[in-house]
Design a protein around this nucleic acid. Sequence first.
DNA 1: AGTATTATTGCGTCTAATTGCAATAAGGAG
DNA 2: CTCCTTATTGCAATTAGACGCAATAATACT
Lengths: 155, 155
Amino acid sequence: MACETYFRSALKERGLRVTKQRELVLAALHEATQPETAEQIYREVSALDPGVDLSTVYRTLALLQELRLVSGVESADGEGRFELVSLHGPHLHLLCQSCGRLEGVAPSEAREFVDKMRSTFGFEVQVEQMVVPGLCQECRARGDVPQPPWARVAE
Amino acid sequence: MACETYFRSALKERGLRVTKQRELVLAALHEATQPETAEQIYREVSALDPGVDLSTVYRTLALLQELRLVSGVESADGEGRFELVSLHGPHLHLLCQSCGRLEGVAPSEAREFVDKMRSTFGFEVQVEQMVVPGLCQECRARGDVPQPPWARVAE
DNA sequence: AGTATTATTGCGTCTAATTGCAATAAGGAG
DNA sequence: CTCCTTATTGCAATTAGACGCAATAATACT
């Protein structure tokens, strides 16, 4: 709700336009209960307006990401998924390289890291877009992937 | 050097095979002075053996990533780039969402974060594959991207 | 409301990367 | 060295997503 209003004003501020297509994509994202693919969103939008093109969905998602209303994660099957930041609050993701499981983590857990990047490199991390690769507990226990001799040398 | 030997033994350990194609890809990566695209590697490999297919290069790069000999970063132009971990030692990358600049960071800077993910979630972060999205100093100074009201709420 | 400006759309096309499959070749056993 | 098993390859086809462009439509202005 607040989201639509913010979207509209953010668009105006930047001289961009409020279009039916953009509002449909945002609305579809509100219905989602978990991260959805562009294709899924496209289908939902198409149900309400069959004329909307898939590329428009992609473009709108990219825009919403720029405005930081939406976060996109590259899940394990190689398909990007998108979710409304306002829905579960901002969070980052842990992506298991072995089983593909995606785990949400509160940004507070990354606070030290984020602060360090800012103070040391002047780099402002966008936590809610962060996807951290690694191995989850289960896969690690299964001993899925080796540690090459130099993997941890420089720490 | 050590890298080839490790590669061979890691393959054998897993019942995989040492092939000419795989050795050519690894050799090409050794020549590189900076992260290269699959296409670039493909061209170098083709120079020595024109029969090698691009998809084989991709498959080998994926394998080398699994073995953690190679790290892949998605650079700003949308093309994946690959580099030998043993060359500059393991490091993570900061990727500016505005200008696309890629900055290398020592894994020690992420140590606290990595440790916290391990102790809290049992998740073993693969630092050298990590690509952190955000805004670099310059782009931030230019005030490129807005901060929506809820972007930092939950911290 | 009517008009001018220009952001946006839909469409067609293109590219990076992945995948299924039949043919090939690595490497262990005899 | 030869045979056998099966991992790997090349090839062709497919997919997710990006892009250029002419047509369309959202604003601002009168």
